[in-house]
Design a protein around this nucleic acid. Structure first.
Length: 937
RNA sequence: GCGAGAGUGGCGGAACCGGCAGACGCGCUGGAUUUAGGAUCCAGUGAGGAGACUCGUGGGGGUUCGAGUCCCCCCUCUCGCACCA
């Protein structure tokens, strides 16, 4: 072959890989499977088959994992490297609506486009394992997992999920009791509410059913949910931005109480938090999950409402400040407000509550600093001081966290302080500030204790208790942590409080009113009864519908109308034993299918179980997926949900590991310039022209330049297709990997690809005479210096690939190749390892060279070159000579030269002599093999 | 406001444990080839200086024989969280 004809080469090898099924992965049970090899499971985050196809930002991660997969295979691993499509969900449905076609049609077409683009990049996936969440053979198992959740409860004492049948048996035998807050154990601690659990037999059949239903991990509940009328569906907390808008489409979201299906992810809060220690993930991602789960340590305390039988439960992280609780605040929505508000305050209370209900989260956010609220005319008794304190309602207390009520300690909490100052409530210090803090506030201990309100600042730190004692307990002089212990044990003794860990994490709202999702395997009967479909009745197939459009609206008062409510009756209505049942109308959210797809890749065609246990053990044990690569945008959504499902399946005995993804890696974004017109609307960046004066125009009109993540929304996408056509996909792959570290975001620059293309051309010329086409590789003795460079390169490249440092691995290979330029022929002992090391990154190119070298089979199956340590040590080394820490010369000495010899030789160097002239050497620093430094004066 | 990370040539980025700053690539300059452009190839390329040398890793200080790297203070940028009791 004369010139590097990448078109012919890439076509040839892609066809051969497909024909010979080069990347087919064998697992336990497959003929020819070699169980003695170690496994390596490398996975890309499940892509969404979008209508726009791939842009150059998408393959960044795919190329990286492909390189790792190919490298690990050459290192002798059995590699699982599959690909599939997360094809249910809102965007797919939106796209279908926009194009007036059924989502199945558009989705299939998009998948085909993506498959073609991925193949064109030479990605070595095992396409025999391809899965799509919309396939009935796949979502049957998604539905089965849901059934398992529905049929499970969380045993807090065993700290794991168990089948509902176990609960019923335990309740009947009296080994568990039906408590007001859930399942209780006999003789267990009294709950803070003080209500005693009831014996099972004393409950009516209906009460028993209701109790059991309330324990299920998938349960129906009426709770305030995020209703997005513009999308026509409710959304999970994770899908709503901090501004109170939908993550998708940026539409307004309203809180509405609606009856919806929930998944009890909160039962797993502690394990989801603690088990982050088991995985090798980027620290920021762990941090984000920890933040989202939001554990805090504190206590529940009951405050009696004076003159009534009612009590207010509060949660506090600072029980040690209870003596400073001078008033209480309930969230405006708190159910107790109606019961205890004084009649003469009713009008004011009602108007405040209505105003609060009308205010969106965005508005509450906007004026977070200004405190508002009203006194409701009732008083509570501070159990520590015995004094009556006023009860207020205020929207700075949120119904969604803790109990929706607080004890306010204005002396030691900023929010309470601001509120107390606003409304003239008493501020009573009970913790001594540190001397440093008092100094910074230019005050003294005495002045502070006399009037803490005189300052603008609040002391919310830790310190010794002061003024905190009653007849039974004293916190005076105790440090905060000791004070907490003392007061909690007192509260527990008095049965008015208990220590408790609290989580920010809420249960997962799991139903959507859209069409394009997995139907729930559930049936609704008369009188609100619910029954699950039998496992044998799965799959519940999504019905074909002419009009699948969601009922969207701009009015937040519109009730949700699920699309499946309009499904044909033969789908909706099921008759069992003469009784009519109606199928659940909601569908599952987009995240459902991606919660467990990594398990299905292990055994994608199994119609009898979701995954074969032997195969699961082989590919998942011990650390789960060995490398999971994707963007940070899934930090809390997908990654938290998937971990939750995984733990549940683990509890039910389906899986062998506690965590799904042992090692996670985030790729950075590809960013690019984007352009907006005078209305601020993005215009197609590809058609923007740069004028001579440096300004930019679109269709003749000036536009301004912005910068951001490449994609559809900024209209600045560049597709890989043209680049691959012009330079070949091997150049493209190298270029994407060479741009910088995989984990950092970087700017796209199309023209820089020529660098990598030239690199390949340069290798080609080292291998072939371009005039004659003759191979220039010879069976000759390799010079010593070249061997040393080669083995240094092997070590560098191996080390870099292990650590996903593709940019420096490529740089090392360029250096090696540059050393071969102009030699006129190269020894086989260098040519072969060079081809092998480059093969994971430029696979087609290297297959061609490997074939020309007479290599056996595909280069993908060839062994990785070994580094010979003997060539890493040199006899002669260059030593840097410094005078007073500045470089003054270099000398070459034997590697094992002793200090005296080096010193003598270094001092003889003319450059060094010049700088030592007239000075006395006071000290000599000698680092063997590296440097010698004369300290002189 | 709180937390995390990052600031290195014209640009993307290298630099193991504190030991030659700027590997490698783009761009640029010069040359070759070409009718020409493009593409390709060869050489050079941190700044200042004729030179010996000097200065250079956001700014300031420190530790050290020696600091991009370690410590303290400050500035800028990116990301995450933000009434969570």
């Amino acid at each position: 072959m004369k010139r590097y004809d990448f078109r012919a080469i890439e076509k040839k090898w892609q066809e051969r890989w497909a024909r010979e099924r080069t990347f087919r992965t064998l697992g336990p049970g497959d003929p020819g499977f070699d169980a003695s090899r170690p496994k390596y499971y490398v996975l890309d985050m499940f892509p969404y088959p979008s209508g726009a196809g791939l842009h150059v930002g998408h393959p960044l991660g795919y190329i990286a994992t492909d390189i790792v997969a190919r490298y690990k295979r050459m290192r002798g691993h059995n590699v699982l490297h599959p690909m599939g499509f997360d094809a249910f969900g809102l965007p797919a449905e939106q796209y279908a609506i926009e194009h007036g076609v059924h989502p199945r049609v558009t989705t299939e077409k998009n998948m085909e486009t993506m498959r073609r683009q991925l193949r064109a990049l030479g990605l070595g996936y095992d396409w025999d394992r391809e899965i799509a969440t919309i396939d009935v053979r796949y979502y049957k198992w998604t539905q089965l997992i849901f059934l398992r959740m529905y049929d499970s409860w969380y045993d807090a004492d065993a700290d794991r999920a168990r089948p509902i049948a176990d609960l019923e048996r335990l309740l009947e035998k009296g080994e568990r009791l039906a408590g007001p807050e859930g399942v209780a154990i006999p003789g267990g601690a009294r709950t803070p509410s003080g209500e005693a659990p009831r014996p099972w037999a004393s409950l009516s059949r209906k009460e028993q059913e209701a109790f059991v239903d309330a324990q299920r991990l998938a349960y129906l509940a009426e709770v305030p949910v995020n209703w997005c009328p513009a999308l026509g569906t409710v959304l999970a907390n994770e899908e709503v931005t901090p501004e109170g808008r939908s993550e998708r489409g940026n539409h307004p979201v309203y809180k509405r109480p609606l009856k919806q299906w929930m998944l009890r992810i909160t039962a797993y809060a502690r394990r989801l938090l603690d088990d982050l220690d088991l995985v090798d993930w980027p620290e920021p991602i762990k941090m984000m999950q920890r933040n989202w789960i939001g554990r805090s340590e504190g206590a529940m305390v009951r405050f009696a409402v004076a003159g009534t039988g009612e009590a207010i439960e509060v949660y506090t992280t600072r029980p040690d400040t209870i003596f400073g609780a001078t008033y209480m605040v309930l969230a405006p929505e708190h159910p107790l407000v109606e019961k205890i508000a004084a009649p003469d305050r009713a009008a004011e209370v009602r108007s405040y509550r209505e105003a609060a209900a009308r205010r969106s989260d965005v508005e509450r956010q906007a004026d977070a600093r200004e405190k508002s609220g009203v006194f409701i005319g009732a008083r509570a008794v501070n159990p520590a001081t015995g004094k009556e304190i006023p009860i207020w309602i205020a929207d700075y207390v949120l119904m969604g966290y803790g109990t929706g009520a607080i004890m306010a300690v204005p002396a030691h909490d900023e929010r309470d302080f601001a509120f107390a100052k606003e409304f003239g409530l008493p501020i009573r210090p009970v913790v001594l500030p540190s001397p440093e803090w008092l100094n910074a506030q230019r005050t003294t201990r005495e002045a502070y204790l006399r009037d803490p309100a005189a300052l603008d600042a609040v002391y919310s730190g830790e310190g010794e208790g002061v003024g905190s004692s009653n007849a039974e307990v004293s916190l005076d002089g105790l440090r905060t942590d000791r004070a907490k212990e003392a007061i909690v044990s007192w509260l527990e003794r008095k049965a008015i409080g208990a220590a408790k860990a609290q989580f920010k994490l809420r249960d997962w709202l799991f139903s959507r009113q859209r069409y394009w999702g997995e139907p729930f395997p559930l049936l609704h009967g008369n009188g609100g009864r619910v029954r699950a479909a039998g496992e044998g009745d799965l799959p519940v197939v999504l019905p074909e519908m002419e009009d699948f459009r969601p009922a969207v609206s701009g009015d937040p008062e519109t009730p949700p109308k699920p699309s499946l409510a309009r499904a044909p009756e033969e789908w909706r209505i099921v008759t069992i034993d003469g009784e009519r049942w109606e199928r659940e109308h909601n569908t599952m959210p987009q995240w459902a299918g991606s919660c467990w797809y990594y398990l299905r890749f292990i055994d994608p065609k199994n119609d009898d179980r979701l995954v074969d246990p032997e195969k699961e053990r082989y590919w998942m044990s011990p650390g789960g997926v060995d490398l999971y690569l994707g963007g940070v945008e899934h930090a809390v959504l997908h990654l938290l949900y998937a971990r939750f499902w995984h733990k549940l399946l683990y509890d039910l005995g389906c899986l062998s590991t506690k965590e799904p993804f042992g090692r996670l890696f985030n790729q950075g974004y590809i960013q690019a310039y984007a352009y907006t017109d005078d209305r601020g609307v993005y215009v197609d960046a590809a058609r923007v022209v740069e004028e001579k004066d440096g300004t930019f125009t679109f269709e003749g009109k000036p536009v301004s330049r912005a910068y951001g993540k490449m994609g559809k929304s900024l209209k600045n996408a560049v597709t890989p297709d043209e680049l691959v056509a012009e330079y070949g996909c091997d150049s493209f792959r190298l270029h994407e990997m060479y741009m910088g570290p995989i984990e950092v975001s970087k700017a796209w620059s199309t023209h820089e690809i020529v660098g990598m293309h030239r690199f390949l051309l340069r290798i080609w010329r080292n291998f072939f005479d371009e005039k004659t086409g003759a191979l220039l590789v010879r069976e000759e003795r390799t010079p010593e210096d070249l061997l040393r460079l080669l083995h240094r390169t092997i070590r560098t490249v191996t080390d870099d690939l292990e650590n996903l440092r593709f940019n420096t691995a490529i740089a090392a290979l360029i250096e090696l190749n540059n050393a071969l330029v102009g030699r006129g022929g190269l020894p086989r002992a260098v040519a072969e390892p060079l081809v092998l090391m480059l093969a994971p990154m430029a696979p087609h190119f290297c297959e061609e060279l490997w074939e020309a070298l007479g290599g056996e089979g595909s280069v993908a199956a060839a062994p990785w070159p070994a580094c010979d340590e003997r060539y890493l040590v040199c006899d002669e080394v260059e030593i840097v000579v410094q005078v007073m820490g500045k470089l003054r010369g270099k000398i070459s000495v034997p590697a094992d030269a002793r200090e005296e010899i080096v010193r003598e030789r270094a001092a003889a160097d003319p450059g060094v002599q010049r700088h030592l002239e007239g000075k006395t050497i006071r000290k000599v620093i000698f680092v063997p093999g590296r440097l010698i430094n004369f300290v002189a004066s």
